[in-house]
Design a protein around this nucleic acid. Structure first.
Lengths: 210, 210
DNA sequence: ATTTTAGTTGACCGAATGGTCAGGTTGTGG
DNA sequence: CCACAACCTGACCATTCGGTCAACTAAAAT
């Protein structure tokens, strides 16, 4: 903290402040929603004057949009873990692992995304209609192929995807509820492992892959 | 609409306005979140002056609290469907049906509840710590009994409950996403039946009850 | 060394916010 | 018919909102 105040180079300053603001904004948006968050609060939490924040981001909406975009990219990265797997045990197993890890490491981003979709996706409707739609139909086809090859039971691929999304994201979006039911304490490492294992076992058995 | 303007009795007026406001508020809170919703907008949507709304409800927070309480009661009612069932197929099957029906009939309430929990349950933390906690431990014990009786596989009851909540509520909370992926159209009756069937089949098989 | 560009910020703005209140209207019990 | 209580609402208020701007400092290019 009390570091020798080495003079910062220009692009260092820019990048440093932008990531600081983005990280802080993610947390505030997650805690209060878009409407409930205020630029002033984000600025205070980041330790910057409001005017400085608005120097880097043109508006509250601009900042919010970038936060959502960030989490969506993380989300899409995890999605790749399902590809080039020989079958559902590896593919869906890896996908569950990846999504559970996101819920653990990026709970705020997950909440922001959930909040955005829940309120009708006013800012990212185009993402849903293009990228997400293509991804979904592609993976549904992959699952259907596994079914045709007799590697799993004939379930509706879309509802399976919904179940995967719902269950894994629940650990982030409803993390506060889970924590409360856990005696007010966040899940421990062992509990996270158990959660992953439970989810994987139930779902993989549910689709007849075990 | 153009009804003979029969003079309304006092308690009729009160009850009529209160339910109108509560229903409208539920929708607005679901669409915008607590922070994003404004008393003015709720009043406009209900066709009442803002001051009149604040005559019936002392504050925005008071109104919000009652909306949350309403959905929580509906939620608890559905929970009873799991009791006095001979085994998991009937008990959990009925619970899934009930929760899916809530997602379909009360999507706004479900969203308000989700939003509240996601933002750290600032208004209903006590519910989580008392009523919800008791309900959860009770049902976990019931599930454990079924396991001990050999009626289902030995899964962690709490994670099963989370999966039930997550999956069923997903159809309400992420209804917009599902609708978008469904070509922009809401799920039809047949699609809702198929959804229920998919969820029940996957989960009941997942816990070794089928 | 000087000009130019990027970063910083206190002061300010119009609009909107949640909430109040005084004074009105309208059912209702006596 | 009257008086009381419940219902209604336009006008108003202090505060906060997102956003602008002019003046300033500091780094980088010439």
């Amino acid at each position: 903290m009390t570091e020798a105040a080495r003079p910062l180079r220009r692009n260092e300053i820019r990048q440093q402040n932008e990531t600081l603001i983005l990280r802080t904004a993610e947390k505030v948006f997650a805690e209060a929603g878009f409407g409930g968050a205020t630029v002033q609060l984000i600025a205070d939490m980041a330790g910057l004057p409001k005017a400085n924040l608005l120097y880097y981001f043109a508006s509250k909406e601009d900042l919010y949009r970038q936060v959502v975009q960030n989490i969506f990219e993380i989300w899409l990265d995890a999605a790749q873990s399902m590809d080039d797997a020989p079958g559902p045990i590896e593919g869906i197993g890896a996908y569950i692992d990846a999504k559970m890890e996101i819920s653990r490491r990026h709970p705020d981003g997950s909440k922001v995304w959930a909040s955005e979709v829940m309120h009708g996706a006013p800012f990212i409707q185009d993402y849903l209609e293009t990228t997400l739609r293509e991804w979904t139909t592609g993976r549904a086809a992959l699952i259907q192929r596994w079914i045709d090859e007799g590697k799993m039971a004939p379930v509706d691929p879309e509802h399976l995807l919904y179940m995967l999304w719902a269950t894994t994201q629940h650990y982030a979006d409803f993390g506060h509820q889970i924590e409360t039911l856990n005696g007010g304490k966040a899940l421990s490492d062992a509990q996270w492992r158990a959660a992953k294992q439970s989810v994987k076992t139930m779902i993989l058995r549910g689709i007849g892959a075990l």
